[in-house]
Structures are given as C-alpha cells and as structure tokens.
Design a protein around this nucleic acid. Structure first.
Length: 589
RNA sequence: CGGGGUGUAGCGCAGCUUGGUUAGCGCGCCACGUUCGGGACGUGGAGGUCGGAGGUUCGAAUCCUCUCACCCCGACCA
C-alpha cells in the first residue's frame, strides 16, 4: 500500500516551464520523474513503479519466447568497437572517456560487439544455434540535443536482443519470432503501434521494420495506405510504378526562359507566352525535371559528385538520400564545386550535361517516376534557357534511379496505387536482420554439419524501455492528467477520503484499504490530513490510476463511489461490494 | 553546429527599458484557528550567492564583455 501521507511525492500545480510535450509535462507534474542532468532523469517512487511494470512486461514476453537474459557492462573498452569500425564511425554521439592509465573507454550506445564476442567465446557448433539473448540495459548517446523529456535522452534504458543463426532461413525464423513477441509485448503495454518498413541505416543489414506509436510529437514520419495496409518510414517508402501511355511527343525544343530561377517562376513563364504554352493544358510543376547535384562523402574520405533528377514539384529529401547512399554521407554542392564542372550551369542543369558518359562525368540518378517515354521540361545547360518535351529514353538516359524525392501526403501506394496518408510516430521498437557484418568483423564462426566453418548470421532487436513509458503517457492522457493502462499503472486503485479528518470516512477508508490489500489489490491511499477534497480529486486525476474509489458523504448510507479515470463514469455502490468489483475489473483487464 | 527565446525561493512568474530602501507576487512548505465532494480561508512564519565570471559605477537583478545551462525550430541521430 502506498500512503500519500508518507509517499515521497509532490505534485505540481503548474506545468514546468521547460517541458513541452505532454508526457514530459505530466510525468514531472504528477511526480513521476525529475530532470537530473541534460538528457537524464531521476525516477521517483510512482515513476519507478510504473517503469518497472513496463520493464517486467517486456522481460516476461522475452522469456516466454525462449530468449535468455544476460547483462553486460555499460562501460566498455575501445577494442571491440575498434574492430567493427564503430569507434570512429559512430561519431560524436558516442560517449568516450579515459581511465587513469589513459586507456579509451566508451559508454555503450548499443551492444552488438559484446554480444557477438561472448557468443564467439562460448559457442562453436551449429548444434548450439539458434540462440537469442537479450539484456535490459542503460544506454548512452551524446545526443546533440536531448529533448522531449524521456523521449530522447542521453541516458535511457533499452531492451536489446540479438539472434544467432547458421543460415538465412534461421535468421528469418528468429526475426519472425521477435516480431511476434514485439506484437504481444506492445499489446500488453497498451501501446498503439504501426509496423512500418524501415531502412537498416548505419547498422548494415537487410530486412528492417520499426514499431511506431502513432503520436504527433514523434520524430519519425511514416506513410500508411488505408486501403492495403502498407506502411513505411518515409526514408524507406518506394515510389509507385508509373504506367506510361505511349504517345508521340513533340521534338525537344530549347526555349528562352529568362529570370526563371525557381520552378514556380518557370511554370508561370511557360504558361504566359503563346510560344511556349501547351495546347492541351497548362504546364504544371510536376512537368518539370529538377536536377540537383550533391557530393557524397564516403567513409574512406573520398568525395564523389552525384546528380539527382526529380519532378519539380518536390524537394530532395536528404534523409531519404542518405538512407539510399549509406554509409556515404550526402553534402550540398558548393560554388567552389560548380567551378570544377564548367559544363554545369547553376539553375539550368539539364540531363544532357549529366551522366557518366557526359562531359561532366557525374553519375546521374533519377526519380523512379522518370521512366522511358515520360517527357519533361528541364534545364538546357545554358543560362536563361530550358528544354521542353525532353523525353526520357529518346533524348536522354540516366545511370539509374534513386528514391530521393520527398514523399507527399496522398502519394499513391506502391503496393495498390491508392493514396497514402502521412503521420508522425515515436519509434518504440526496431527489428532488423543484421546479417554477417558483425560476425565477420569479429570472426564469429561455427562448424556446420559438414564440419566446415560458417559465419553466423545475426539479427538485432530493440525496445526503448524508458521511452515506452513516455510513449504510453503520450497515448494515455487527457486535459486533467495521465490515464495509465491497467498493466502499467502505479497502483490498481486510488483510494480517496473525501470528508472531515475526524469524520466517519477515514475509519471506513482505512478498513477498505486493508481489505484491498488483503485481496491483492495494489492501492494508492490518499490518507493525507488537512487536504481539501478538490486537491485530492485533482491529484488523483493527475496521477492517473485507472480506478478511483472515493469514500465520501455516501458513507452514512454505506455507499462509496467508484470512478473510472478514463471515461469519468461514476458508480455508487455498497462499500461491502467494492473489493469484489475491483477484483473483477482486474481479472477482466 | 546554425537561428530564436529564457535563466530571479521547490514550482509558475513580476521587477531590468530609465542603476538607488531590507528583491517582490501566486502556488507549495511550517505553526495556530476555521473549513471539508472539485486545486478553501484567516493570522503569523521559514526559504534567495537574482545561472556563473569579469568589468563600468559612490552604488548593479538592472548597464557592458565573456561564459554556462535550459527550451523551441533546423541540422544531426540505433
């Protein structure tokens, strides 16, 4: 039993000024957490109870799936991360430190290396596999900008699992098992989620999906097709295939287009003059082909220019480009770069000047919408001139295609062609097939049935535990405070005394609290003296325990009020029936 | 890292433009009394290196310089 008269808790009447998002605001205000460091939080009693319930559910589902829990240090030596290249590749987000002998250490942002090494140390036969092991561990990332309270901290708790298999089929099975386990885990946590296709990014590997809680304050953008259910992170969205009607296009024509530095000004200019107007309809921004040049900086430091052609009604989405060209990093083309390529006329770059066989020799990749038979208005490689009716396949060819254009609300689904909608989400889980990157780097091999050495293939699976607490708060609150799902609430019932300190309510409530406890019901008991009823009700709503029991004026008739925090529904019932009622609520949850 | 904003009691804020009593208000906290089903009231209290350092001045929360921290937008980010 938690007695509020002695509980280490102070609720705040006002929102803390440094908290913006609801989870941060409410968790601080209701006395669950306190900021302790930039990107670091202290868990207070109510918060820690809730946190542990979340952690226990995650652990329980892992164990039910047959995964085994281990625990590594958060403080690790440099060497394993040197072997996989991540000591340098991870960049400034890695917390690095030195011991007294000046040896390099790090605070682990994730533990692929350590898991790989410990399996290599202990296992050496295909008979030992498959194996999935996990830990629930504090992780450290020196985020440039921690924000939104628990949602993006520099210290946070993550459940990370790793699977080890001899072949791709085994990896797929381990991946599927984790996927199923994540589904049951998030269901139990009461977290809404969407499973989206994702990019594996810097981690390497192939198949990858994210579990996103669809909440506006989330940092990830995803698209979802309401028709067929396809969902993907915008980084991973594929452009729908375009069918090209076979029509005879006019010959490509160079036209004067002075002072048309932007797509809008170009379209306006074309539509204004008789000579350039279309006969069938006005020109539109997506008739134009915009060519953007970037530099790719490869991990070894070499720089390669890359030209990207996309429909003019869209911008280049650098995140999407980055996901495509990883591990290389795209950077903007500078004026100095343009000077090195005199064939490129800034603002009027056309496909004829691009491509590995062109004068510039710059690799030219186009949006998947730019396919053979499509006609475009694009730069003529001369200042103040554009070309109309430049047909892909007839007048120019590209070196390939790239998913680089921004995704727009309503874009057709690549699976079924129906319009897709965009939304924001909080990444609460990520599963992906790592493959053999780490096993190769760290020499994790086992003997197969034929006695041959084979490199193990791995999967990596994460759930943000502390972030999940915040995500639940984000999805379970209203204007009055938190409304926890039963499974993670800090108590089963919040028992409130509403009456004079020396009235009959107090002894009745004490008796009821004892009865709850005997029945195995966790009770948060507001037994404070000298606190007015309004304060008690406000605090109960703020704290968010799913059921609130009020022992008030009805007690003279033997009645207490049972209130549902979420719906606000109140029911008076005889005090003798309450315990059975709550027990039934818990059983049905 | 770029742009913007804010640092004054546990929380929320005023005071700063135009330097000058003992730095103020609400909430919270302590004591006493009243009140007791929707953040009650009265009386009396405790609590501050005004983010930090340096400077200008007879005198700095207030003006100047530097610095640190936090928040927002962007960049970055398993």
């Amino acid at each position: 039993m938690l007695r509020m008269s002695t509980l280490f808790l102070r609720t705040l009447r006002d929102d803390p000024s440094d908290a913006e998002v609801p989870s941060h605001r409410l968790l601080v205000r209701a006395g669950y957490i306190r900021r302790a460091a930039p990107g670091g939080f202290t868990w207070l009693p109510l918060g820690w109870i809730t946190y542990r319930k979340v952690e226990d559910i995650i652990r329980d589902e892992m164990n039910k799936a047959g995964f085994q829990e281990v625990h590594f240090p958060a403080l690790l030596p440099r060497e394993p991360y040197e072997a996989t290249g991540r000591w340098t590749e991870y960049g400034p987000n890695l917390f690095r430190l030195k011991d007294r002998r000046n040896n390099d250490f790090l605070l682990a942002p994730t533990h692929e290396e350590m898991f790989t090494l410990v399996v290599r140390d202990l296992f050496s036969s295909y008979r030992d596999l498959p194996l999935s092991i996990y830990q629930i561990q504090t992780k450290y990332r020196d985020e440039a900008r921690p924000r939104a309270g628990l949602l993006r901290g520099r210290e946070f708790v993550m459940k990370d699992s790793y699977s080890f298999d001899v072949d791709d089929d085994g990896l797929q099975a381990s991946y599927d098992r984790h996927r199923d386990t994540y589904i049951s885990t998030f269901d139990r946590l009461g977290l809404p989620y969407v499973i989206v296709s994702a990019m594996s990014g810097a981690m390497g590997g192939s198949a990858s999906e994210e579990f996103l809680a669809p909440i506006d304050v989330g940092e990830d953008t995803f698209v979802q097709c309401t028709s067929c259910g396809y969902a993907a992170n915008t980084e991973a969205v594929l452009v729908a295939a375009t069918s090209v009607p076979s029509v005879e296009h006019p010959a490509a024509t160079v036209v004067d287009t002075p002072n048309t530095p932007t797509i809008d000004s170009l379209v306006e200019h074309l539509n204004a003059a008789d000579a350039t107007q279309r006969s069938d309809r006005p020109w539109a921004a997506d008739d134009t082909l915009k060519n953007v040049v970037l530099n790719l900086v490869h991990p070894d430091g070499t720089v390669e220019p890359l030209a990207i052609g996309i429909p003019g009604n869209r911008e280049v989405d650098l995140k999407r480009v980055e996901a495509q060209v990883a591990p290389a990093e795209p950077t903007p083309f500078t004026d100095a770069d343009f000077e090195k390529y005199p064939s490129l006329v800034k603002g009027y770059i056309g496909p004829q000047a691009l491509g590995t066989n062109s004068p510039s020799g710059i690799r030219y990749l186009v949006d998947p919408r730019v396919v053979n038979g499509t006609a475009w208005v694009t730069g003529a490689n001369t200042a103040g001139h554009h070309v109309t009716h430049l047909v892909c396949g007839r007048d120019f060819t590209a070196d390939g295609s790239i998913e680089a254009a921004e995704v727009l609300e309503g874009d057709p689904c690549s699976q079924c062609g129906e319009p897709m909608s965009m939304a924001r989400g909080i990444e609460i889980g990520h599963i992906f097939q790592l493959g053999r990157k780490y096993a190769e780097a760290l020499d994790l091999r086992v003997l197969d049935a034929d006695g041959k050495q084979v490199t193990v293939t791995m999967g990596s699976y994460g759930i943000g535990v502390s972030r999940a607490v915040a995500a639940i708060a984000e999805s379970h609150h209203d204007e009055y405070g938190l409304c926890w799902p039963r499974a993670v609430a800090p108590a089963d019932v919040h028992l409130v005394i509403a009456g004079k300190d020396d009235g009959p309510q107090r002894p009745a409530a004490e008796t009821l609290a004892a009865e709850f406890e005997a029945a195995g019901i966790d009770v948060l008991f507001d037994d404070r003296e000298g606190v007015s009823p309004g304060v008690r009700f406000k605090d109960a709503e703020l704290i968010g325990v799913p059921t609130i029991v009020v022992v008030g004026r009805g007690i003279t008739d033997g009645l207490v009020e049972v209130k549902d925090r979420l719906t606000g529904e109140r029911t008076d019932m005889p005090i003798g029936e309450v315990t059975a009622h709550i027990t039934a609520l818990l059983a049905n949850a």
